[in-house]
């Protein structure tokens, strides 16, 4: 269960987030729908621990984690531009999280194989990530963010930048993966169809600003 309440973030004089609140139940997929530049990505960064809010509280399973560093939160994030590590191959990218959590080598190998199968990239383990197509990169990014079994997965415009056909196909695949793995997720997007197809609940950005969902 993720609880975000009264988050305020100011960059200089400008308040990017002004009292944003959001509640997500275990296993729920919530889509936050809003225009570009509204501050949705900043909210995800606050939840992930990449930006410290000026005020407000982030709590996971009833425990406040507002001041906890990103690497100790167990909250995964799939970035808009994938942010795959170009110095690592596909398998090493997916194994990165489990390595950081000190899983054993054999369990990491099993997890990588399992996720490669889930995202339809079996046989891609040793590929260089800069040689992958746009759709393949998205799949690796999804597998990588799921690998350490995060308590919550944050998806920042995960299908932006793809052509329409691939975008529509990946919506179905992404939804299936999230449901199969029973992942608690927060998706931010400006695409109404994407939000409706992936999420169990869709909230408007303006509703969050007014005091919570």
């Amino acid at each position: 269960m993720l609880d975000v309440s009264g988050i305020v973030v100011r960059f200089g004089e400008r308040a990017v987030l002004d009292g944003v609140s959001l509640h997500v139940d275990d296993g729920e997929i919530v889509a936050v729908l809003g225009p570009s530049g509204a501050g949705k990505s900043t909210l995800l960064r606050v939840i992930a621990g990449l930006i410290r809010p000026d005020s407000g509280v982030v709590a996971l399973e009833g425990v406040e984690i507002t001041s906890r560093p990103a690497h100790l939160r167990n909250i995964g994030m799939m970035f808009q531009d994938e942010q795959l590590f170009p110095n690592l191959d596909v398998a090493a990218n997916i194994a990165f999280g489990p390595r950081m959590h000190r899983w054993s080598a054999s369990i990491i190998r099993e997890r990588v194989d399992e996720l490669l199968g889930v995202v339809g990239l079996a046989g891609f383990a040793e590929r260089r990530v800069d040689r992958l197509s746009g759709g393949e990169k998205k799949r690796v990014a999804l597998a990588r963010s799921l690998a350490p079994r995060p308590a919550v997965l944050l998806l920042d415009e995960p299908l932006t930048g793809l052509d329409r056909e691939l975008h529509d196909r990946l919506i179905g695949e992404l939804g299936a993966v999230l449901r199969t793995t029973a992942t608690t997720a927060v998706l931010v997007t400006h695409d109404r169809d994407e939000a409706a197809a992936l999420a169990g609940r869709v909230v408007q950005w303006s509703e969050l600003q007014r005091g919570g969902s």
Binding site: H71, N74, F79, D81, F96, G97, S145, P148
Partner: peptide, 21 residues
């Protein structure tokens, strides 16, 4: 990209690990 280090952090890397790896 700024987010590359952020990605490593959300995967469990400490600041030093993110810099090293």
């Amino acid at each position: 990209p700024h987010d590359l280090v952020g990605a490593a952090r959300t995967l469990g890397a400490s600041p030093i690990q993110a810099a090293r790896l």
